[in-house]
Design a protein around this nucleic acid. Structure first.
Length: 332
DNA sequence: AATGATTTCAACCGCCCACGT
DNA sequence: TACGTGGGCGGTTGAAATCAT
């Protein structure tokens, strides 16, 4: 199906925005709010395409935008999220408050990508690029190699989360934060927490209510502390408090994981993907999040103590590697 | 100081998806 | 169900800024 252009191209201005145009757009948005971009230009007295107006607002005029140099913390976050999410800039941007996807994308392309390349890491796959890397210290090499494995695993899992969300949405679930037994155990293995929210929109808006789902994690662990139970899988039998629908979701989650790469709506994935990870990266940072500080559970209760240690070391090393790099100017 | 090369980043473009009719 | 529309996304472009010679 074809579609008409978003606007009549004739007579519309392109290129850099003038201060006068900015003023008009700002004034209009302040008075009427944003949205309705197609009709906005004529209403605002702008000879611009609606898309152009939207972009200008989102990337420049929006009041909650932070401009200027990226902090090392922000750069770390971008690198780590890129390892997990790839070029999903909008998803990455949701974890960098006040930064736009465009800005992040530009920063990646102009700085971070080169930095990783300089380190011998393929910025696309986050895998070591050549054999020279093998001469690095054993631990570092191991961790870099692990990155791709973990990224692939996480991608598959996040896709499964997305599917779960879609299925849940279809069943008209009410919005809530919850944890399935399976996801609790596996997320703890990775030092991460995820939420199976019923609505992707609400999953985005309400974030993951970190406090609440931390509690849920603890509760779920307590309920499934017997490794034999979790190894049997959760079909609802060992989680009597859950509704039938929730059991269905758990089943779907487990059943779909292995085929998860076949499907996926990026936007849904993005929404889901970010929640726990944002908490991990921005609030707890790696050390705190992975060390289990202030939490009740232990990795061993899930039979995965070594995984926690492994991943913690792994991420710490990634951070160390990034931190050890001099700033852009020194490096390049 | 002049000039060419390189880098940066704002903006555009085309595509995709969700939603309404 | 098919179609039209709006909004959003990621890739790319090109002018401006910066750097190197």
């Amino acid at each position: 199906m074809g579609r008409s252009p978003c606007c009549d191209k004739d007579g519309l201005k392109k290129g850099p925005w003038t201060p006068e145009e900015d003023e008009k757009l700002l004034a209009y948005v302040e008075q009427h709010g944003h949205g309705g971009w197609r009709s906005l230009p004529s209403k605002a007295g702008l000879h611009r395409c609606g898309k152009s107006c939207r972009l200008r607002w989102i990337n420049y005029l929006r009041p909650d935008i932070k401009r200027g140099k990226f902090s090392s913390q922000e750069e770390q976050t971008i690198i780590q999220l890129h390892a997990l999410l790839g070029n999903r800039w909008s998803a990455i941007a949701t974890h960098l408050p006040k930064r736009t996807d465009n800005e992040i994308k530009n920063h990646w392309n102009t700085h971070l990508k080169k930095r990783l390349a300089k380190m011998g890491i393929d910025p696309v796959t986050h895998k070591p690029k050549n054999e020279t890397l093998l001469t690095m210290s054993t631990g570092q090499t191991k961790n870099v190699v692990n990155l791709s494995h973990m990224a692939q695993w996480e991608s598959a899992r996040l896709e499964a989360e997305a599917r779960l969300v879609r299925e849940a949405k279809l069943r008209s679930y009410s919005v809530r934060c919850r944890q399935t037994t399976w996801s609790s155990a596996s997320n703890i293995e990775n030092g991460m927490e995820f939420v199976n929210a019923a609505s992707d929109d609400d999953a985005t808006r309400t974030a993951s209510c970190p406090t609440l789902h931390r509690q849920n994690v603890t509760e779920s662990i307590a309920a499934t502390s017997d490794p034999s139970d979790s190894s049997k899988g959760d079909s609802g039998d060992n989680d009597k408090d859950n509704s039938r629908d929730e059991d269905d979701v758990s089943e779907g989650y487990k059943g779909n994981l292995d085929i998860s790469l076949e499907f996926g709506s990026d936007r849904v994935v993005d929404n889901v993907a970010g929640e726990g990870f944002a908490d991990l990266l921005l609030n707890g940072s790696v050390d705190r999040s992975l060390s289990g500080e202030g939490r009740e559970y232990s990795g061993e209760s899930c039979g995965s103590h070594y995984l926690i240690e492994d991943n913690r070391d792994y991420w710490n090393n990634i951070l160390d590697m990034v931190n050890s790099l001099p700033s852009d100017s020194q490096m390049f």
